[in-house]
Amino acid sequence: MTSPFTFFSIISEFLYEANEGLDQATQASKDQPVAFTIPQIEIELNGKVIRDEELEMVPSNAFESNYYGDKGESKLKLTFKLVPGEQNV
């Protein structure tokens, strides 16, 4: 379950899922008098950055919880912004 991810995999997966989630919510609330959109998503991941053939990150999870603790865990902060729908908010 704890698998290493390239940064591309992490980013693209979150991008895809965020787009998909927003799309689904927009569809589901299109008949409502009010709808919400997400101008920004911030994600902070704890884990370790490893190097195999490529640079990869293994996010900490329930099964490998904080092996390194505060001293050794890397932190990846990602900020996603919505374009160009953001301008309509």
Binding site: I11, S12, N19, K77, T79, F80
Partner: peptide
């Protein structure tokens, strides 16, 4: 990948911050 989405809007990565322990 973000720009190739077949949607009217898409999220893009605006900041990448890595606090790397090494």
């Amino acid at each position: 990948f973000a720009m190739s989405q077949d949607r009217s809007t898409t999220f893009v990565l605006s900041d990448f911050n890595l606090q790397l322990k090494a």
